[in-house]
């Protein structure tokens, strides 16, 4: 049942070079996500509104946007939890180039996963035995804390260090590196350590913690980065001895 009330929704439009804000009046429903609001505008008010979504259930990580100044997964964000009065301001994710309206170019974000060696480095072949790793293995448990990342880039967008240091690899890529470093099946620890020890690596993190505060899956990239700092420090001191 629709409420009698309405929402005032301002949306950032345009590309990287030419941006403006459009305001829409949207019917308020008692059960409504921010993505519902954006879809309603696209379907009823302006079919040229460009945005990105896929699964609508918080798994694919494609619908993240800035909602009233805060990065959020819009498909799982209830309007009532994001409203300021009856007002919503929706913008593309911060810290990424805008393609059009609410769609950002995610290339820099994913390129940094590669730069951080955030991909599996296998050493075994199909002829080898499986590496047996018990669920209670401490390193496995540490890795488990970070593997539910859905690549939504909310942490990357929330990070003030990324904002001021475009080279910085960012929380998601570094957390991925940390999970792989703790994965006994990954055979290139030193490659990962070198990748996160450079001038764009984990040591640039100021531990401000926005990544951990805003991660929609309640992961803790800040602690993962702290883990990388500890591990890189240990290994650097060992190398020098």
């Amino acid at each position: 049942m629709p409420d009698t009330s309405e929402l005032t929704v301002t949306i950032q439009r345009g590309d990287q070079h030419d941006q403006h804000m459009d305001t829409f009046t949207v019917p308020a429903f008692s059960n409504q996500t921010v993505l519902d609001v954006v879809s309603w505008i696209q379907q009823n008010e302006d079919p040229t509104l460009t945005y990105r979504f896929a699964c609508r259930v918080g798994m694919c990580g494609s619908c993240a946007m800035m909602v009233n100044g805060v990065p959020r997964w819009t498909c799982r964000t209830h309007v009532k939890n994001a409203l300021k009065g009856q007002y919503l301001e929706i913008a593309p994710l911060r810290n990424l180039p805008v393609i059009k309206d609410l769609v950002t170019d995610m290339d820099p974000f994913f390129d940094k996963w590669i730069d951080a060696e955030g991909h599996h480095h296998a050493s075994l072949t199909r002829n080898d035995e499986f590496a047996a790793i018990t669920p209670t293995n401490p390193k496995r448990m540490t890795a488990n804390e970070g593997i539910e990342c859905i690549n939504c880039a909310v942490c990357y967008s929330a990070c003030d260090t990324v904002k001021n240091n475009a080279e910085y690899l960012g929380p998601a890529a570094l957390q991925r590196a940390w999970t792989l470093l703790n994965d006994d099946r990954d055979e290139q620890d030193e490659t990962i350590i070198d990748a996160v020890s450079g001038s764009s690596g984990c040591h640039n993190c100021h531990s401000m913690g926005s990544c951990t505060v805003y991660c929609p899956n309640e992961l803790d990239p800040m602690s993962a980065i702290a883990g990388l700092k500890r591990e890189t420090t240990k290994r650097a001191l060992r190398r020098r001895r």
């Binding site: 240091n165 080279e167 001038s199 690596g201 040591h203 640039n204 700092k229 890189t232 420090t233 650097a236």
Partner: peptide, 12 residues
């Protein structure tokens, strides 16, 4: 703009 060497120097 900090690498491991600068980071260590600053911590030490």
């Amino acid at each position: 703009m900090l690498n491991i060497t600068l980071y260590l120097l600053q911590r030490v």
